[in-house]
Design a protein around this nucleic acid. Sequence first.
DNA 1: TGCAACCTTATAGTTAACTATAAGGTAGTA
DNA 2: TACTACCTTATAGTTAACTATAAGGTTGCA
Lengths: 130, 130
Amino acid sequence: MTIGQLAQELNIKTQTIRYYENQGLLSKPERTQSNYRIYDQNSIKRLTFIKRAKEIGFSLGDIKTLLEMSDKKVNRCADVKDFAETRLIKIRSRIEDLKSMEMTLSDIIKQCSQPNKTAECPIIESLTEG
Amino acid sequence: MTIGQLAQELNIKTQTIRYYENQGLLSKPERTQSNYRIYDQNSIKRLTFIKRAKEIGFSLGDIKTLLEMSDKKVNRCADVKDFAETRLIKIRSRIEDLKSMEMTLSDIIKQCSQPNKTAECPIIESLTEG
DNA sequence: TGCAACCTTATAGTTAACTATAAGGTAGTA
DNA sequence: TACTACCTTATAGTTAACTATAAGGTTGCA
Ligand SMILES: [Zn+2]
Ligand SMILES: [Zn+2]
Ligand SMILES: [Zn+2]
Ligand SMILES: [Zn+2]
């Protein structure tokens, strides 16, 4: 399987696969005598791992660590769990930030719903006032 | 008021203020005869506007538009509201994405809480399996 | 006068995760 | 033998919002 076929299979760009290889997420693949990369089912598995981990919000750096833990295959459950919990905390904190933004924003939008014709726009006001 | 004093007042870097000026968020300020920028209370107001808008999740591009709407001072309430609503929708959508990540992640973490000693780590499993 | 702490400009680097380009080699088909 | 679609490498560009650096001018104070 060439890089192009692998890319199509997973709906990603060939450059992205090479980029992952450079970043150490994928090991150096075998080559044909004409120096083309060759991949197999294992490569699909690994890239699928990466895609799923990205969907759960892990960064490529995180994913590299996860893959290393997965590769080690020894007594890593606690490590993996700690790692995932750290990520979960970050996601929750980001959600809280966004919720706070959402509340503020929807509040001032509501104030704008019955605008006093003679006054400033409440949204602008709330950003401007002391 | 020099740029350094303004920066200190608002707890931002002088470079950031110049950057905002370059991006068109701040108008070109008056200069002393030695070419130093001079600012007044109005500059503080405008930067405070920017800081608050950032806190609500607006990008600098958004904020530029908001400031322009604010500067126009005519019949802009509906425009501002539309704009804020668009931003609110984006924030909500981002929250939903993160919540979905949170659910998936906390689910697999829970599975890892009672790990079967002989099995793979459920977190790794769930990323690996077909 | 000397020196530190400011100010100016222009340009380049940072971060993450790609994405595009250039310049060229290879494989299969008409 | 062309042509097309692949493949290779290295390098640079993208996005957002700064942040740092270099090289030099200005202000205030001892
Ligand atoms: Zn309004
Ligand atoms: Zn586990
Ligand atoms: Zn070529
Ligand atoms: Zn100097």
